[in-house]
């Protein structure tokens, strides 16, 4: 286990970003697939809900999460009644917050990648007796791999930069909820500018490299199917 607060925060932030990304890919994949296929009229409502974190201040999301997950909230209170701990100021709470916060960054690239495939490859697969699940895994997923990598990288990167939600529901606890962005904020308040500068510069460099990778990949693999 890392000993310095800086290393603890780096490890915690990477763990949070990786977990949120994994959950988003597992949950966001089917959701984006359904959105790209359905002709249901209520679809726009779902799309608007997913896009909300793009425009809402993270504090709004954090505020409602605090109310829901805390000991007096609907979810936290139920957990407490069952003899478990509520989720405010816990790592699990941060994961839940990050999944909501980064949801559009996972679902939107996936949805456009799935839409770009069109119906023809899937119909062709169907004529070869591929079932719907089979078609999703053997045809849609490989064709949408660019969108999948983009969605994974963006939801990972977006969670790295999360601040407002963590500020509201995290509690700045080293090793548990003190992510990099929160530690930088805390060090600035403590007037430890040297350490804050080192962490900020590392985060800046890492985020840039991550995005550079995403954009370079998008250049190298233009959409294969029109």
């Amino acid at each position: 286990m890392p000993t310095s607060p800086e290393l603890a925060a780096v490890w915690l932030t990477l763990k949070l970003a990786a977990l949120s990304m994994a959950i988003l890919m597992v949950l966001g994949g089917p959701l984006a697939w359904w959105l790209s296929r359905t002709s249901w009229r209520g679809k726009v409502v779902v799309e608007a809900l997913i896009a909300l974190p793009l425009v809402l201040p993270p504090t709004v999301l954090g505020f409602y999460l605090l109310l829901m997950l805390g000991p007096n909230g609907a979810i936290g209170g139920t957990l407490e009644a069952l003899g478990l701990r509520h989720l405010a100021f816990s790592f699990t709470g941060l994961v839940i917050g990050s999944v909501f916060y980064s949801l559009p960054f996972a679902v939107q690239p996936l949805q456009s990648a799935f839409q770009a495939i069109g119906n023809r490859p899937l119909e062709a697969a169907a004529t070869m007796r591929a079932g719907p699940v089979d078609r999703f895994f053997t045809v849609a997923l490989p064709l949408a791999r660019r969108g999948i990598i983009t969605a994974a990288s963006l939801s990972f990167a977006h969670t790295l930069g999360e601040f407002g939600v963590v500020l509201m529901i995290g509690g700045n606890i080293p090793g548990k909820t003190q992510t990099l962005s929160i530690l930088i904020y805390d060090q600035t308040e403590a007037m430890q500018f040297g350490s804050a500068h080192m962490l900020s510069a590392s985060l800046l460099g890492f985020s840039f490299l991550l995005l550079l990778g995403v954009y370079a990949m998008n250049r190298r693999f233009p959409v294969g199917l029109k």
Binding site: F89, G171, I173, P174, D186
Partner: peptide
């Protein structure tokens, strides 16, 4: 020992909301 700093009012609110 781990110490977390903030305004007293914010800390109070966090404790009421179950901060550990």
């Amino acid at each position: 020992i781990e110490v977390i700093y903030g305004s007293s009012g914010k800390m109070r609110t966090q404790i009421v909301n179950g901060a550990p």
